[in-house]
C-alpha cells in the first residue's frame, strides 16, 4: 500500500470524534499519532490499503497528568513532553521512561508519541518496554466507552494490538507505586538512530532494609512478537536483598522466559548474551537510583 492512495486526512477534535471516525471507516483508516514509523511501514509494504488517516493532534490527548500518585500519559504526549515533564524529571520511579525517551534523536523525540509507540504493537520500540516495567495500563475508548487493558496483555502479535477495530488508545496509565521504587531502561543499538537490537526495562521496589518487595524485568527488541516479562528474574529478586550473586542468578534466569530471535542485525545467541548483561546493568542502575549499592 502506498500512502498516496489515502483520500482523506481527518483531524477529529476529541477522542470521541476519533472513535466515531474509526467506526465509520473500519479498517480503511489508521490513526496518525507522531507519524515517525508510518513511512517506514509503507515503504516495507506493511501498511494495509487505506482511505483515510486520522490525525489525533487536535484530540486533546497531549497531556501528562498526575492523578493521586498515578501518572496518566495522554496518547499524543511526545517523547519530548515526557522528557521535559516535571512529574518525571529526576524521579527514580519513572527513571525507565526518562531513559527510554532519551535514546532516539531529537527529531524523533519531538514527534514520537506514547500512543503511537504502544499501539503500533512491536517489540522493537523502547517506550512500551519501559511502560510495561511500570505496570502500565492502556486506556482504550470505544463506542461502548472506556476499557483498561494491561500492557502485559496488549501485544497480541506483530503489529496487532489488543484493540478492537473501532477502539482508540487514549492514554497509558502508570499506577501509583509504593515508596522506594525505582526503574531503569537500557537499549542496545548500533547507532543513535536505531531500532533496538535488544532493550530492557526494570523496576524494583524495596523495603527500608533494601529487601526487594517486587520487581519487574521486561525485555524487548528482537525477542519476537512482543516485549516479554522475565518472571523468572522477578521471582528470584522478590524477597531478597540484591547482591552480586543474586544479580548474577537473575541474569542467568532471563533466558528461561526470553527467547531472542536471529535476523540480519544480530543472532539469537548474541541477543541472549546481552540480555543477561543488561538485566544486571539495568537493575544496578535502578538500585543506584534508590541509593543502594551492591556487593
Amino acid at each position: 500500500m502506498a500512502l498516496q492512495e489515502v483520500k482523506e486526512f481527518l483531524r477529529p477534535e476529541s477522542s470521541q470524534a476519533a472513535v466515531e471516525l474509526l467506526a465509520k471507516y473500519g479498517n480503511r483508516a489508521v490513526i496518525l499519532a507522531g507519524g515517525t514509523f508510518l513511512h517506514g511501514l509503507a515503504s516495507r509494504g506493511l501498511l494495509p490499503n487505506l482511505d483515510a488517516l486520522i490525525d489525533l493532534q487536535q484530540a486533546g490527548l497531549s497531556y501528562v497528568k498526575s492523578e493521586d500518585g498515578a501518572l496518566a500519559l495522554g496518547a499524543m504526549a511526545t517523547f519530548a513532553d515526557l522528557r521535559d515533564a516535571d512529574q518525571l524529571k529526576g524521579t527514580s520511579r519513572f527513571g525507565a521512561v526518562s531513559d527510554a525517551v532519551r535514546y532516539p534523536p531529537p527529531q524523533i523525540q519531538n514527534m514520537a508519541t506514547v500512543g503511537g509507540s504502544v499501539a503500533t504493537a512491536t517489540s522493537l520500540f523502547d517506550l512500551p518496554v519501559a511502560l510495561m516495567a511500570l505496570d502500565g495500563t492502556v486506556k482504550a475508548l470505544g463506542p461502548a466507552g472506556f476499557r483498561a487493558i494491561g500492557l502485559d496483555n496488549f501485544f497480541l502479535d506483530y503489529f496487532e494490538p489488543a484493540l478492537q477495530k473501532e477502539e482508540l488508545l487514549v492514554e497509558v496509565l502508570l499506577p501509583k507505586l509504593p515508596p522506594r521504587s525505582a526503574s531503569a531502561f537500557l537499549k542496545l543499538e548500533t547507532n543513535a538512530n536505531d531500532l533496538a537490537l535488544l532493550n530492557i526495562g526494570v523496576r524494583i521496589t524495596v523495603d527500608e532494609s533494601g529487601t526487594c518487595l517486587e520487581a519487574r524485568v521486561v525485555v524487548g527488541g528482537g525477542v519476537g512478537k512482543s516485549p516479554v516479562r522475565a518472571v523468572s528474574c522477578e521471582s528470584i529478586l522478590k524477597g531478597k536483598r540484591c547482591s552480586e550473586k543474586i544479580l548474577a542468578e537473575c541474569a542467568q534466569a532471563v533466558l528461561a522466559d526470553v527467547h531472542p530471535v536471529s535476523d540480519h542485525r544480530a543472532s539469537a545467541q548474541y541477543r541472549a548474551a546481552v540480555a543477561k548483561v543488561f538485566v544486571r546493568r539495568a537493575l544496578l542502575q535502578a538500585l543506584g537510583r534508590l541509593g543502594l549499592t551492591v556487593s
Binding site: F9, R11, L32, G35, T36, L38, H39, L53, D55, Q57, Q107, N110, M111
Partner: peptide, 10 residues
C-alpha cells in the same frame, strides 16, 4: 522535526 515525516495537513 523531519519534514519528510510530517504530513502537510497536520
Amino acid at each position: 522535526v523531519y519534514a519528510c515525516m510530517v504530513f502537510a495537513l497536520s
